[in-house]
Simulated scan of single mutants.
Amino acid sequence: MRWLAKRIGQAIFTLWAIVTISFVLIRFLPGGPIDYLVVQLKKKKIPESIIDNYVENYISFQPDQPLWVQYIDYVSSVLQGDLGQAYFQDGMVFDILAQALPWTIFLAAIATFVTTVVGIAFGGFMAYTEGSKFDSGVTLFSTVAGGIPYYILAITLVYLFGYRWQMFPTGGQVDPSLVAGFNWPYVKSVLYHAVLPLLSTTLVGWGGVALSMRGNSISILGEDYIRVARLRGLSRRRIALRYVARNAMLPMYTGILLSIAFMLGGSVILEQIFAYPGIGLYLFKAVVSSDYPLMMGGLIMISTAVVIGVLVADLTYSKIDPRASSEGERESY
């Protein structure tokens, strides 16, 4: 319990630091959101007597109050899900990001799943056929593909399959003419629009997983307990699945969980290329248009996802690896 409380306490402290940093950026950034918003309101000849009320609606605290009061008001608003109002988007920041977040999680989860499954399958087979033409060919392909930035591949896929051959849509997450719901036409449209974004991440990502799985599997194949399992007459399939694959995947477990969280941050460029309306696209628009409340809201939401990913990985690692029983050994990052 002491170890669990320590990890949860670290996560809470990290989230508090993120919220505090966002407050500092909003409040003290030179030429930041407060000065920017006041100037914009004065251009519209709004009386100064009501400018503070507008500012409070946008950034969740009164700029003329004492600093500690502003900070308490801001933290209280964030805890209640009030991240202020977007400057150039219609609606509150939390509502905008809450509608966009499921689409980003959808892409990140499927991309991570496909990348992991394909990478583990190829990596395990490469280890069992070490030195073969298949091993050498896949290793070369994985090394080359891993060096290609995903956004370069994304632009190439959009040009070829979107504009040149017109096989896939170049933007959006679903056909707007369809009624949202769990029905085949709607699901089919969602998957159809997600093909190119998923390909751009999985094609360059599975090779790294395969190489990691290959290296881990080769090192495990030389262990004494593998030799004992063979001497006992256990089937090759059982040795491969229960002894080699299971232990080879353990070092990769934390990275797999964290990759979902970090894909939320990497979605900024990807969703901009494919005009995919996830949290990354809105964060990009916020940066370009200096929409500070939306920018800070995106920062808080993405950082929270990363912290939760680290916490889940740390809390669950000992469940899949009983050897990690002591507090010092249970550090998964």
Rank of each mutant, 00 (worst) to 15 (best):
Gln80Leu: 07
Pro176Ala: 00
Pro66Glu: 15
Ile148Tyr: 00
Asp90Ala: 04
Gln173Met: 09
Gly297Ala: 08
Pro66Cys: 09
Tyr159Gln: 12
Arg7Met: 03
Ala210Leu: 06
Gln65His: 12
Phe134Ala: 00
Ile12Gly: 01
Gln166Ile: 07
Val310Ile: 10
Asp175Phe: 05
Val39Ser: 11
Ile46Asp: 13
Phe94His: 05
Pro47Ile: 06
Ile46Tyr: 06
Gly81Gln: 03
Ala286Tyr: 10
Leu311Gly: 00
Ile218Ser: 12
Pro149Trp: 13
Arg232Ala: 08
Lys133Gly: 12
Val190Phe: 01
Ile8Gly: 04
Ser177Tyr: 03
Thr20Phe: 08
Val78Phe: 05
Tyr292Asp: 04
Arg27Ile: 04
Met167Leu: 14
Trp206Asp: 04
Leu198Ala: 00
Ala109His: 13
Gly31Asn: 14
Gln99Ala: 06
Gly119Thr: 12
Ile273Ser: 04
Val55Trp: 13
Met1Val: 02
Gly298Ala: 06
Gln62Gly: 09
Gly9Met: 03
Gly123Leu: 15
Leu157Gly: 07
Met1Thr: 08
Gln10Ala: 03
Ile72Val: 12
Thr202Arg: 04
Tyr253Gln: 06
Tyr253Glu: 09
His193Tyr: 11
Val55Thr: 13
Ile226Val: 12
Leu153Glu: 10
Ile120Val: 15
Gly124Leu: 15
Ser290Ala: 10
Phe141Gly: 14
Val38Gln: 14
Gly119Glu: 14
Gly146Ser: 09
Val187Pro: 00
Ala108Leu: 06
Phe106Cys: 07
Val174Lys: 05
Ala108Cys: 08
Ser177Gln: 02
Ala109Asp: 11
Ile46Arg: 08
Val118Cys: 08
Ile12Asn: 07
Phe161Asn: 08
Gly9Val: 08
Ser142Lys: 14
Gly278Asn: 06
Phe284Asn: 14
Ile50Thr: 15
Lys43Val: 11
Leu196Glu: 05
Ile269Cys: 01
Ser49Glu: 15
Leu311Pro: 05
Tyr186His: 00
Phe122Asn: 15
Asp175Gln: 00
Asp224Thr: 07
Gly146Trp: 12
Ala11Pro: 11
Glu329Leu: 10
Leu198Thr: 04
Gly181Asn: 01
Ile302Gly: 02
Thr14Cys: 00
Ser289Ile: 02
Phe28Gly: 09
